[in-house]
């Protein structure tokens, strides 16, 4: 049997906003169950690339292939249909609605004209337990949770839509140490279910905890791609900043 195509493959993605070129040729692949760290300095084009992959923006040229099949992602709904989920930095939760209500926002189970709250809470508890997310009650309001708990609820919601690829934009920024741990563990859990994960983060130490591979972006291009085992934090910093001393070490 021939080698299975990667879950998602991007080739030569380009994107300009008027005269400003944001992406000038990005290649990136993620496999099923793989955690890919996407790093690069501010303005390197990480977020633009992920918005393209989530269908929120359209690229000018280049190919996106899902399971070896070239696809056109012209809207977020298209991306969802292709099994691509994203958790944005602002999480898109409602503070005054409880945990279960947020997990099922926009797709609440119904019994006749009414929301089936019993089913919603039971299902929420199951989803959260599956992912080892701990909240004291699914009836707790989101606004009363800590930043880390909110993050895990947002990720759990994205996972409950059963994506093949999950994009996480800075999930550990501004979290307390113990909360970072639970988010990282959740990422590991998600990947172990065979979901491909793209993790964008500025916290380089997190990459070494959960990632299998790192793709580095620099000024709108993907410039490096290396298994995490070949890297240490100094090498990674050098790859992001393109500083000279490390140049000859790179293949």
């Amino acid at each position: 049997m021939a080698e299975k195509p990667p879950l998602v493959e991007l080739r030569g993605i380009r994107k300009s906003f008027g005269a400003v070129t944001s992406l000038s040729g990005v290649d990136l692949t993620v496999g099923a169950g793989e955690v890919l760290g996407l790093v690069g300095d501010n303005g390197a084009g990480k977020s633009t690339l992920m918005k393209i992959l989530a269908g929120a923006l359209q690229h000018d040229s280049g190919d996106i292939a899902v399971n070896g099949r070239t696809v056109r992602l012209s809207s977020p709904a298209d991306a969802r249909r292709e099994g691509i989920g994203i958790v944005y930095q602002d999480l898109a939760l409602c503070d005054t609605i409880d945990v279960a209500g947020n997990l099922f926002l926009g797709r609440e189970p119904r019994k006749g004209p009414f929301i089936d709250r019993a089913a919603m809470h039971a299902e929420s508890a199951r989803i959260l337990a599956d992912l080892h997310v701990r909240v004291s009650s699914t009836r707790q309001e989101i606004g009363q949770l800590s930043g880390g708990q909110r993050q895990t609820v947002a990720i759990a919601r994205a996972v409950s839509l059963e994506p093949d690829l999950l994009i996480l934009d800075e999930p550990t920024a501004a979290l307390a140490v113990a909360e970072v741990e639970s988010v990282l563990r959740l990422i590991g859990d998600v990947a172990s279910r065979g979901v491909g994960v793209i993790l964008i983060t500025h916290r380089l130490q997190d990459l070494f905890r959960v990632c299998d591979r790192i793709t580095v972006m620099y000024e709108g291009r993907s410039v490096d791609d290396a298994p995490i085992g070949d890297l240490d934090i100094e090498k990674l910093v050098a790859m992001i900043t393109r500083s000279d001393p490390q140049k000859e070490e790179r293949p």
């Binding site: 004291s136 800590s146 909360e179 741990e181 639970s182 990282l184 070494f208 905890r209 959960v210």
Partner: peptide, 19 residues
């Protein structure tokens, strides 16, 4: 695979009841 499993207890885990 990298070290994914060696994480500490999650934050803010309270008993699951309506106190």
């Amino acid at each position: 695979m990298t070290a994914r499993t060696d994480t500490a207890a999650p934050a803010g885990s309270a008993p699951p009841r309506l106190s």
